[in-house]
Every structure is written in C-alpha cells, then in structure tokens.
Amino acid sequence: MTDANSAPKMAVMKTRPEFLRTASARRQTAPAFLLQARDRKDGDPKIQVGFTASKKTGNSVVRSRAKRRLREAARAVLLPKGQPGWDYVLVARPGATVTRLFTDLLADLETALAKVHEARK
C-alpha cells in the first residue's frame, strides 16, 4: 500500500505552449492514439497530461467520447506507471480511439509508455 503523499499528482495541460513543448519531444504510436512525452526537468514531481482530438476524429460527440476514453486510460495507467516530472499528450486517432476495446486501449498505453521510457541508444 502506497502513501497518498508519495504518489505523484496528475495535472491537466490547458495552454497551447504546454502542448507545443510536448509535441516537439518523444513520440510513440499506438493503434488507438499517439503518445507524446517529455521530461520537464524542472524538479516538480507532478505528471502533466493533455488530450487532443482533431476534427478528423469526427464530430464533437465523437471527439468528446475519444477524449473521455483517453482521460480514463490516463487515470488508470499514467498515475501508477508515469514518470514524475514528465508531460504526456494523448492524441486521438480517427475511428480507432472510440472503437478500440478499453482493455486494449489500456494495454496500448502501457506499451507506449514503456517504449517512451526505455533507455535511448
């Protein structure tokens, strides 16, 4: 059992510059989304996460559903397995984010996260 104070906090990105800084860093594709990640190197242990779905994803109802699914996946995977001090952006893919089984979506996020954090050669 972990102490609630030792677990990293998760904050949601809201400003365009935050998204742009993360977009220029590491990327990992997955069947249902694109994961962008960067180490902030600012000493703040919180995990920042952003969600985006372009109009290519579908109408507003479909985009909202895609972002809700990505938010829930981030809550389930990024909090326990994300690195403190990192920013993550999950970009929805047209069709795939909404139609993929949620268990597969979680597995995709775990795999993408592991690949982003594996040692660079």
Score class of each variant (00 low, 15 high):
residue 1 M to L: 12
residue 3 D to K: 07
residue 6 S to C: 02
residue 8 P to S: 13
residue 12 V to Y: 13
residue 13 M to I: 06
residue 14 K to A: 15
residue 17 P to E: 06
residue 18 E to F: 00
residue 18 E to N: 01
residue 19 F to M: 06
residue 20 L to H: 06
residue 23 A to M: 13
residue 26 R to L: 12
residue 27 R to I: 11
residue 28 Q to C: 14
residue 29 T to W: 09
residue 29 T to K: 06
residue 30 A to M: 04
residue 32 A to P: 00
residue 33 F to H: 04
residue 34 L to C: 04
residue 35 L to C: 02
residue 35 L to G: 04
residue 35 L to V: 05
residue 38 R to L: 10
residue 40 R to H: 06
residue 41 K to S: 06
residue 42 D to W: 01
residue 42 D to C: 00
residue 42 D to E: 07
residue 44 D to F: 03
residue 45 P to Q: 09
residue 46 K to G: 07
residue 46 K to Y: 00
residue 46 K to P: 00
residue 47 I to Q: 01
residue 48 Q to W: 09
residue 50 G to Y: 12
residue 51 F to W: 03
residue 51 F to D: 09
residue 51 F to C: 11
residue 57 T to F: 14
residue 59 N to D: 15
residue 61 V to S: 11
residue 65 R to C: 04
residue 68 R to S: 05
residue 71 R to H: 13
residue 74 A to R: 06
residue 77 V to Q: 03
residue 78 L to W: 03
residue 78 L to V: 08
residue 80 P to T: 08
residue 81 K to S: 14
residue 82 G to K: 04
residue 82 G to L: 00
residue 83 Q to W: 00
residue 84 P to A: 13
residue 87 D to Q: 09
residue 88 Y to T: 08
residue 89 V to D: 02
residue 95 G to K: 10
residue 95 G to T: 05
residue 97 T to Q: 08
residue 99 T to E: 15
residue 100 R to Y: 02
residue 102 F to G: 08
residue 102 F to R: 04
residue 103 T to H: 05
residue 104 D to I: 06
residue 107 A to N: 10
residue 108 D to G: 07
residue 110 E to D: 14
residue 114 A to W: 02
residue 117 H to D: 10
residue 118 E to L: 02
residue 119 A to K: 14
residue 120 R to I: 11
